[in-house]
């Protein structure tokens, strides 16, 4: 009985089902904690200019490498810039890139995956082999190759995320489409003369949305890490734009004398990654009817 209710939950868009879904999600304390983290960071990111006490690019040679204090919450860096303000603006950069990149991958990957899965046969083979080739490259190598072709910039990183994560969305979407294709309602849509794009995007996509949302949340976490990694390596966001990864690189030279320089940006990277991961896990559990009695 419980299983039946849960199954309906994953598919229906009914209000009461949405409420059930929300209730089930909210029971998962860890996921709620993650949601809280992400919402806080979202607010911070949106209102960074209002919250930040200093302009992130202004250098102050009277306050170089000062430790955390009431004046400079996270201390200052080697050019006297306020690290707290730079972290806030860093969030803006990293969130823009991740959001853009993951959305690009979602649109590309889902279209490819759903089409391949629904059409099957030759189309499926061609599309998924191309995706496999893309997946065979370690994403960092792929990123370095793309960026060396495009020149380092934050838009380059966005593009890298978009391309590197496409295969993941394509695979998830394909597996959903392959099973939904066999559903009777898809057959009866064909019988009614519905066009292929209508079937794929209006009927298969909404039914596959659960696993895709889980993938989006998890990829957000990876996206933040990859963006930070590329900036750490110096091929991502370019100065003077504030970037969390770049602050880590610069700070590591001062680790012995000014721990705050890299510790705070490091924590700043960690928090949203934990947040997205716990939300993703929570959503996956909620979408999965088998785990109802967890």
């Amino acid at each position: 009985m419980a299983t039946e209710i849960e199954t309906q939950q994953t598919t229906g868009r009914d209000e009461s089902q949405l409420r059930q879904f929300a209730e089930s999600f909210l029971e998962n304390k860890l996921a709620v904690f993650g949601l809280f983290l992400i919402l806080s960071i979202g607010v911070i990111t949106l209102f960074a200019p209002q919250i930040a006490p200093y302009e992130p690019r202004t250098q102050n040679y009277d306050a170089i490498l000062e430790g955390p204090s009431a004046e400079h919450l996270f201390g200052t860096d080697n050019l006297g810039r306020d690290i707290f303000s730079r972290v806030l603006y860093g969030y803006q950069t990293v969130m823009t890139i991740t959001l853009g990149g993951v959305m690009m991958a979602f649109v590309l990957g889902t279209s490819i995956g759903l089409t391949a899965g629904y059409r099957g046969g030759w189309t499926d083979q061609a599309m998924m082999r191309a995706v496999d080739v893309l997946m065979a490259f370690p994403s960092l190598i792929l990123a370095l190759a793309l960026i060396s072709a495009l020149g380092p910039s934050k838009w380059g990183v966005l593009l890298v995320l978009g391309v590197a994560y496409t295969p993941i969305f394509a695979r998830v979407a394909r597996s959903e489409a392959v099973s939904l294709r066999e559903e009777q309602f898809v057959k009866s849509l064909e019988v009614r003369g519905a066009s292929q794009s209508r079937i794929v995007f209006r009927h298969i996509l909404p039914n596959a949305v659960g696993p895709l949302i889980v993938t989006i949340t998890l990829q957000f976490a990876f996206g933040i890490l990859t963006t930070a990694t590329l900036s750490f390596l110096g091929v991502g966001v370019q100065p003077p734009d504030p970037s969390l990864g770049r602050m880590l690189t610069e700070g590591k030279d001062y680790l012995a004398t000014a721990w705050w320089y890299s510790i705070f940006p490091g924590l700043a990277i960690m928090i949203p990654v934990i947040g997205f991961n716990t939300i993703g896990d929570g959503l996956r559990d909620t979408f999965d009817p088998r785990q109802v009695n967890r």
């Binding site: 598919t11 229906g12 009866s188 064909e190 019988v191 009614r192 519905a194």
Partner: peptide, 26 residues
């Protein structure tokens, strides 16, 4: 032509299992 003129318009079909013949999300 089939999709436009025939399927669902001139000839329709009803399947065995009504439980799965409708899209659950609409």
């Amino acid at each position: 032509e089939l999709a436009k003129q025939i399927r669902g318009r001139e000839i329709s079909m009803v399947f065995q299992d009504p439980n799965t013949s409708l899209d659950p999300v609409y």
